Simulated scan of single mutants.
Amino acid sequence: MATTSGVPAGPDLGAALMADDHAARALGITIEVSAPGAATARMSTSPEMGNGHGIVHGGYVFTLADTAFAFALNSHGLPGVSVHADIAFLLPARVGVELAAHATERVFDGRAGIYDVEVRDDDGALLAEVRIHGRIPSARTP
């Protein structure tokens, strides 16, 4: 269950964040922020994303997860960034499928948070699990 330590949700920065996120737009990533601290990013994969093994390069899978995280963290209305991430690739992502990354806030104290992201394919198979630590650089702790 996500906690926010009584920190009120601020204005959604989603539109502004996506407008300036050239990487996400170039990859055709779409975003849905379902609640403060939760977001889903979707991306269709193409042959250009394939690696030498004929599967989607892990960097694209991570980029999708990081994008979902960014929108979940920034849904609180303050600009934040990732400071640490760990990814476990569980199954290969096939070229030509749609991937979805769902970010869930585990804890957020107004300045820092921890988020879990699951990346699944269009059949619902769990491809990767990601844990990302984020920080709001402008936030000050009393």
Rank of each mutant, 00 (worst) to 15 (best):
P8F: 01
V83R: 00
V130F: 07
L90D: 09
T4D: 12
G77K: 02
S75F: 05
R111V: 03
I55F: 14
D66L: 11
G77T: 05
A9Y: 01
E129P: 08
I31P: 09
E118L: 15
T63C: 13
N74Y: 11
A65C: 09
F69Q: 05
A112G: 05
G14C: 15
T45A: 05
V119Y: 01
G6V: 03
G77R: 06
S75I: 01
H102E: 11
V119M: 09
I87C: 09
H22K: 15
D116R: 15
T67Y: 04
L73W: 02
E129G: 11
H53N: 05
E98W: 00
A101C: 09
A112V: 06
T104A: 15
L90G: 12
D21V: 06
L64D: 01
L13C: 15
P47K: 03
A19T: 13
A23Q: 13
L73T: 02
D116P: 10
A68M: 09
R131I: 11
F108R: 07
L64C: 07
G14W: 10
G54Y: 00
A125Q: 03
N51A: 06
H22W: 11
M18G: 12
D123V: 14
D86G: 02
V33N: 05
R131S: 02
P11K: 08
V33K: 07
A19V: 12
A19W: 13
N51Q: 12
M18V: 14
E32D: 13
T30W: 00
E129H: 13
S82I: 02
A88G: 06
R42G: 04
D122R: 00
N51M: 08
